[in-house]
Design a protein around this nucleic acid. Structure first.
Length: 559
DNA sequence: GCCGTTTTCGGCCCGACTGTTTTCAGTCG
């Protein structure tokens, strides 16, 4: 897995350098496509033939084999010698692409964003062909933005903002598209589509959350909010709503693939519709467009050009797990530890969501700050039994979230753990252990017969804490054997496991639990993010234990 | 560079916006 990511990142760097050197655009695309395919490939390319990755032919395979041998390849070394790293960094500045970057380097020796800022402010670039005063000002602003933020936000932040924007505008029809609709775990900007009179644009630009207007046209307006996030609003004709949603949902790679199919049929697909000459074949709904192209409907999170187009054409796209398939939540907290709401209120909220089962999993004693004791846990178990009588149609499971110590052990001995209906076990500290130690730690937890689910496995916090380093391939192998499920923690700043690792785990036969990790009632709704993540990894209900009926779940839990 | 129910060669998605342009290049999604 790590080999895949490192090789993919080298190939992506090569694609960027190749573009800077004026290389053929189609070849650039080939390299980028292959890099993405390798990064997301479920098998380790240091073990299997890299030629089995779609988009990798003989030439790229040779480069990758050389990379696996010695950590680089000849062509990459050549280009690194010709283009300084800082020039590649220049293209990260918004509105500055490869053509401008290489011109700045070759004609003016600019090889970093700092050098570019100096050149602009000193007036050295005044009067340069193609760089008028507005362009220079925009570049300066882009450098500022890149330096101070340049960040993506997690899906939870983006979703609330999108909902706020949609509520602030009047339209016949309005919806979010883009990476937010695809439920990526981080979002760079927000795309909103609307069927509305053009006056919506002036209304949009006047909203209090607008800090800066980036672009203003009849069909598209881009703004930056006071929170620093870019929002694009596009007005689309009602009759091409489906085509516009399809187009602006992306991903870009998915769209390229289905446009190529349209072209092969002698048609043209744009954001206005699927056309044969002037004749409209489909435009009003996404479903019509996919059907007209002779393929299954592809749910947005699966639109990554990761094999879904081929599968949909053959009618072999798996039916992905949906929010409505979830029959319960297996990781939630109450105010007995660090939750906000009482046991009674959390259970009532779970019941209101129509669950068939609901697990209460407060922390255990080893997280000392939680002040948990066995007595408190047993008292809670009594309250659960009492409460159960009130909800005959929902099974309340009394569980716990154990802490995985550095040696892989957990809070309580087996005879205590046996008394819980479900045990989630998670890492909460000692994130910096070596890869080998961390791997042993997780494997020991999986081999504990009372541990049912590994909670938020990588422990990453998006934008705050990197994932721990571990040999996931080895861990998933063990988890598949011991019947230990991996959690998909739906808390949007966690989104953990990440979808690439979910794919890898599924490949090994691991099962999953899509949980909210709620510490308050509104958190229960976060499962929608976890479901999006699971769809991106092509999970079906068979892969997800909390879509199963209670008796099948209990059998899996071995209680 | 890759790829093949039109092809092992000749294709490879398409439109909007900006800024600097007398008709278009660069960038973005």
């Amino acid at each position: 897995m790590r080999a895949n990511e490192e090789a993919a990142s080298a190939l992506q760097e090569y694609a960027e350098l190749f573009a800077l050197c004026g290389g053929d655009a189609f070849r650039v695309r080939s390299y980028q496509k292959a890099a993405k395919a390798i990064a997301g490939f479920p098998e380790d390319i240091s073990v299997v033939d890299v030629r089995s990755v779609p988009g990798v032919g003989e030439a790229i395979a040779k480069k990758m084999e050389e990379f696996l041998q010695r950590g680089s390849f000849r062509q990459l070394d050549d280009l690194r010698g010709r283009v300084p790293e800082g020039v590649r960094a220049l293209t990260k500045v918004p509105t500055l692409g490869p053509k401008t970057a290489i011109m700045l380097f070759e004609d003016y020796g600019i090889d970093s964003t700092a050098a570019l800022r100096e050149a602009i402010t000193s007036g050295r670039l005044d009067g340069v062909k193609g760089l008028g005063p507005k362009t220079l000002a925009n570049l300066l602003k882009g450098i500022d933005q890149l330096e101070q933020s340049g960040r993506r936000v997690h899906v939870g932040v983006a979703m609330s903002l999108a909902e706020q924007v949609m509520a602030s505008l009047e339209a016949e029809r309005i919806a979010y598209a883009g990476s937010l609709r695809r439920m990526k775990d981080t979002i760079g900007d927000i795309d909103i589509l609307a069927v509305a009179p053009e006056s919506i644009m002036t209304a949009f630009r006047a909203q209090p959350y607008v800090a800066e207007i980036i672009a203003a046209g009849d069909k598209k307006t881009s703004i930056r909010t006071t929170s620093g996030i870019q929002v694009d609003l596009r007005v689309v004709p009602a009759e091409s709503w489906g085509a516009a949603m399809q187009y602006f949902t992306g991903s870009k790679e998915h769209n390229v693939a289905i446009r190529e199919m349209a072209v092969k049929k002698g048609w043209k697909l744009s954001e206005y519709g699927l056309f044969e000459g002037e004749r409209v074949i489909a435009a009003a709904s996404e479903e019509d467009i996919y059907a007209a192209l002779g393929m299954q409907y592809v749910p947005p999170p699966m639109r990554e050009d990761g094999g879904e187009v081929k599968a949909a054409l053959r009618g072999e796209l798996p039916e992905p797990v949906e929010l409505g398939d979830l029959k319960g939540d297996l990781h939630t907290h109450t105010n007995l530890t660090d939750g906000i709401a009482s046991l009674e209120d959390m259970v009532a909220a779970g019941h209101a969501r129509g669950y068939a089962y609901y697990a209460v999993t407060d922390h255990a004693p080893d997280l000392a700050m939680q002040r948990m004791t066995l007595d408190k846990a047993l008292e809670q178990r009594g309250q659960v039994a009492e409460l159960q009588r009130k909800y005959p149609d929902m099974r309340i499971l009394h569980g716990t979230e154990l802490n995985i110590a550095p040696d892989g052990s957990v809070d309580w001995p087996g005879e205590v753990l046996a008394g819980f209906d479900v045990c989630v076990a998670s890492v909460h500290s000692h994130f910096g252990m070596s890869r080998d130690e961390m791997t042993r730690r997780f494997i020991a937890a999986c081999e504990n017969p009372y541990v049912d689910i590994i909670g938020h496995p990588t422990t990453r916090k998006i934008g705050k804490r990197p994932p721990v380093d571990a040999d996931w391939d080895a861990i998933f192998r063990v988890a598949a054997r011991t019947g230990t499920a991996m959690e998909i923690d739906s808390f949007p700043d966690r989104s953990d496991l990440p979808s690439d690792l979910v794919r890898l785990a599924k490949h090994h036969g691991v099962k999953f639990s899509i949980d909210s990790d709620s510490h308050a009632i509104p958190h229960l709704a976060n499962q929608r993010f976890g479901v999006g993540l699971a769809q991106r990894a092509w999970l079906t209900t068979d892969d997800v234990i909390n879509t199963w009926p209670l008796d099948r779940l209990l059998k899996f839990l071995g209680r």
